[in-house]
Design a protein around this nucleic acid. Sequence first.
DNA 1: TGAAAACTGAACTGACCAGTTTATATTCCA
DNA 2: TGGAATATAAACTGGTCAGTTCAGTTTTCA
Lengths: 205, 205
Amino acid sequence: MNTQRPEIRKGRKYDQVLAGAREVFLRDGFEGASVDDIARAAKVSKATLYSYFPDKRHMFMEMAREQCARQAEVMLQEIDRTAPATKILAQTARGVLQLILSEFGLKVFRICVAEADRFPELGRRFYETGPAMGRQHLAAYLREATSRNELKIDNFELAAAQFQELCKADLYLRLVFGINVSFTEDEIETVVQEAVSTFMARYGA
Amino acid sequence: MNTQRPEIRKGRKYDQVLAGAREVFLRDGFEGASVDDIARAAKVSKATLYSYFPDKRHMFMEMAREQCARQAEVMLQEIDRTAPATKILAQTARGVLQLILSEFGLKVFRICVAEADRFPELGRRFYETGPAMGRQHLAAYLREATSRNELKIDNFELAAAQFQELCKADLYLRLVFGINVSFTEDEIETVVQEAVSTFMARYGA
DNA sequence: TGAAAACTGAACTGACCAGTTTATATTCCA
DNA sequence: TGGAATATAAACTGGTCAGTTCAGTTTTCA
């Protein structure tokens, strides 16, 4: 998936720049963020920014890529792969929801959706390092569980995609469109359990 | 749901204006669309635009609201409510997919997602006239079918939301992030059938 | 038919912004 | 320690855009 190493990094203030970019992009969105603001937030001159990145878009893309990688790593560590399927699925569902319901997850999603047709590379990269990556890991698990007769699945990729979608039921659109700003543990847990139940009703052995 | 009648309509060129707004907003997005372009496309002066709408946002909102209502109406007419559940669900799934995979559906979704936090009313209205409306109709059907023992459901709203999400599996994110521009009938039909199968596995009587 | 309502075009205001340039200053390391 | 790499501040270019204003024209309808 790692298309190629861009190796854009040059100087000692690179991390400051990414931090400033993260702060401003997440606060103001892509169009809303001004490069001058980012330079100010990063305590760096505009010329320095432009020595690291060819333009604002690449600045955003690097910031998003780096954060996604970080978040994904956290999520994978938390999962206990020896437990029974219902437990693993519930853990996975909680992980997915924690990520996509977080402020970071939501803001990056918004920006990537908005920019995906003016800036196709951004959309593609987000899809691949985000949802597609998660789905692949999940599909791999589903294949394992099927091979030891814990689950019964033909189309692993689609089943994984279905599970991901089931996790969002009710909650995600309400968040994305600003009906709710956050949810209680109970609301989340209900959706998690219902997602697992529906999934297991179809795919349980 | 109809918060209040705005009754903004004033003059004889109102429909031209909405048509121009639709053309330009869907082509260029919200930020990308310029009011001068809309005026040009609508063959109307800018001053006339601003006599109908207080600002660009309200222009967009009216356009979107009117289109959503139109699309929803079409969808509801197509459904044969006397058929067995699997058939009705499959029809519904096809309807949902046709709408959300359409150029219009996608573009409006993109714009509403992007603007939802700068312009909360837009997000709310889209959610209510779009996904929430669809879910309500579906939940009402699920209640009927449960009462005649065709289905077995406790939480109608959540089940409806689950079904809506199942319809999107795999396809929707690939469209939103520009991995695919369109899908074959076969791809769609597979997702429809799998959505229905999973749903019925859990909720079939 | 004539006055009121709606519309026009074009200029204007006031603002914002991506990306470049340049002369100068700081930091690094061989 | 001195040259190379890196960073800075600030001005500048060339552009975009929402929304207003106004003098003048067209349409409507009583």
